Simulated assay, not measured.
Amino acid sequence: MRRQYRYYDLILAAFVAVILCSNFIGAGKAATLDLPYFGLVVFGAGILFFPISYLISDVLTEVYGYAYDRRTVWAGFAALGFAAIMVQVVIHLPVAPGSYMANYQQGLETVFGNSWRIALGSMIAFWCGSFVNSYVLAKMKVWTQGKYLWARTIGSTATGELVDSSLFYMIAFYAVWPTAEIIQVAIAQYILKTSWEVLATPFTYWIIGYLKRKENEDYYDTNTNFTPFQLKVDR
């Protein structure tokens, strides 16, 4: 019988919430930030919250192992798929008469009209980047015998985010935004999200330490089947 954990389900729910909100609320807006030495930097607004998903993924892999994070990634993937379908259904439903609903419909189409591409880009980039992140962290934990947690969390995030950033903006916004802006935003997103992980390292240490004590778990993926196409936890 598979072992039951006190906090895993809560962490999974938090992961799904972060994925949905960061991809649908923040992804479509290009924001700016004036940084010292760098000047005006353009970035996707979702970058402020999406890195939390990588932090959660690192925590899940470090404490519970790759197989539990794999289940979480698939839950987030399914939630994104459902949200994308729901958005398209809502947009294409006939609009009730009246100026208010006409304006409301226009607003929905402005915000979510490109949602199918955002959802497609989000799902592909998120799925690929998340599994790369979890795989690298799990393998590094075995290689380092559980040492250098900071190097494992930052290294795995930098690798996963590189895959994610390389895929998402080209899929979601090619021919919608100017290509130069897509590249600029993608690079800024990668740098800022990886930097976010570095700054969050003390909190990552704390939450991992807390969960390891409370769950009495510190799993090493020595004999794990790393295929992403599986939901079963073989322990």
Score class of each variant (00 low, 15 high):
R213Y: 00
A30N: 10
A180K: 10
F229C: 13
L231P: 00
V132R: 11
M101Y: 11
V89M: 14
A102G: 10
S53N: 11
Y219Q: 08
C128Q: 11
G39S: 09
D164T: 15
Q4N: 05
L93F: 10
K29A: 08
M170K: 11
R2K: 10
A13T: 07
Y68H: 15
F203T: 14
V132M: 09
R152L: 04
F173C: 08
S195L: 12
L167I: 15
E217H: 07
F203E: 09
G155M: 06
L80V: 15
I154Q: 00
T110Y: 06
Y190P: 02
G28L: 04
W116E: 09
V111F: 08
I208T: 07
T32P: 00
G107P: 00
D218W: 00
G107L: 12
G129L: 09
K214G: 06
V163E: 00
N23K: 08
A75I: 08
I124T: 08
A188L: 07
A200S: 13
I85P: 01
V41G: 03
V95Q: 10
F77M: 10
T222D: 00
G146L: 05
F50M: 12
V16W: 01
W150G: 09
Q145K: 15
Y174M: 15
G160Y: 03
R213Q: 11
N133Q: 03
F43S: 10
T159M: 15
A30G: 05
W150T: 12
Q88C: 14
F43T: 13
T72I: 15
L60T: 11
G76D: 06
S57L: 08
Y220C: 06
G155E: 04
Y169I: 15
S115Q: 14
T227L: 09
G160E: 06
P178A: 11
A200V: 08
S53M: 07
S22M: 05
Y68P: 02
T204G: 01
R235F: 07
L12E: 00
Y7P: 03
D218G: 09
T157Q: 01
W127G: 08
A27W: 02
S156Q: 13
A13V: 06
V163F: 02
E217M: 13
L40F: 08
T159E: 02
V16Y: 05
R70G: 09
V41K: 01
V63M: 06
A14G: 10
T159W: 05
D34C: 12
Y148P: 03
V142G: 01
N225Q: 05
L108S: 08
Y54A: 13
L55P: 04
R235P: 04
A84R: 02
I118W: 00
A30C: 12
I171D: 03
T157R: 00
K141D: 00
I19D: 01
T159Y: 07
V59G: 06
Y68S: 07
A158M: 03
V89F: 12
W74D: 12
E161N: 14
I208P: 02
Q184C: 05
G107V: 05
F82N: 07
V63I: 08
I124S: 02
I171T: 06
I19H: 04
S134N: 06
S165P: 03
R3Y: 01
L231Q: 05
I182W: 00
G44T: 14
F126K: 12
D69A: 15
